[in-house]
């Protein structure tokens, strides 16, 4: 894993003069195993610098448009790296002109900050949770529990096509309001159970349709099982009413940040 790094001397040869795509930062020795394919189909390697290392792969500047497989590759490389230790993930799409520029422009000036982040995130992983209502189930629940919705439904169902526009609009508005209220309450209940198990929570704004909750939890590895159990219990209770997606352990995408350049 240090073969590439070993060739990276301040005097640039043909390999170090090429642009490098950067996935994230790890401790030296924590680079993913060789043979991993990354963005642009290139083999993943690394650039080490005094105890820390950037996970990188060569990239051709002429070919920098992101494709579906590139986005997936970025994520997969980081997930794989997490198997070897703590990983600080970079946002997708960051390229340095050369290995030298990566050292001089990032690894070297940011070293103390990166080392601190690596310590801070040791043994902590991101878990991604999304919960959505099953449409038919939640709509049926609303019809059942809201008399006005039930009446409007009955009225607009029997009306011939095109008739009852106002009533249909009112029905839809009521349903939308019910969905919002239910999502708010259900999200609060889910968070009440999950938040105590996490060190931090990052909820995504801009809800998607029928979304109850979409967010990330920073969890200590030793609490992982507890978190699994808590979420499993929730999923069991909400079976048929909500659908869940649960992904992890991931590097702490939602929780890492650097000081803005000017303010160091």
């Amino acid at each position: 894993m240090s073969a590439r790094a070993a060739t990276a001397t301040p005097t640039e040869d043909s390999s170090t003069a090429r642009p490098v795509y950067v996935y994230g930062v790890v401790r030296a020795g924590g680079l993913p195993s060789r043979g991993l394919t990354g963005v642009d189909g290139a083999e993943v390697g690394g650039v080490e610098h005094e105890g820390i290392a950037a996970i990188t792969s060569p990239i051709s500047v002429k070919h920098v448009r992101a494709r579906r497989r590139d986005l997936l590759a970025h994520s997969e490389v980081l997930t794989k790296a997490l198997e070897h230790g703590t990983v600080l993930p970079l946002q997708f799409g960051i390229v340095f002109e050369t290995e030298k520029a990566l050292r001089a422009g990032f690894l070297e000036p940011r070293k103390p900050e990166l080392e601190k982040l690596l310590r801070d995130f040791d043994g902590r992983v991101e878990l991604r949770v999304t919960a959505f209502y099953v449409e038919e189930a939640i709509l049926a629940e609303i019809v059942e529990q809201n008399g006005r919705v039930a009446r409007l439904r009955a009225a607009t169902r029997s009306a011939p096509g095109g008739v009852g526009y106002g009533a249909r609009l009112e029905l839809g508005e009521l349903v939308a309001a019910e969905l919002r209220a239910r999502a708010r309450n259900d999200a609060r209940a889910l968070l009440e159970q999950l938040r105590p198990l996490a060190m931090a929570v990052d909820l995504d704004e801009e809800p998607l349709e029928h979304q109850v909750l979409r967010g990330s939890f920073l969890v200590a590895r030793e609490r992982l099982e507890k978190f699994d159990e808590a979420l499993d219990e929730i999923a069991k209770r909400q079976a048929g009413r909500m659908q869940f997606k649960y992904v992890g352990p991931l590097p702490p995408h939602s929780f890492v940040s650097l000081e803005p350049e000017g303010r160091r």
Binding site: G24, P89, S257
Partner: peptide, 8 residues
Amino acid sequence: GLVLDAYI
């Protein structure tokens, strides 16, 4: 994820 100012 980490965002950097000076990069392509």
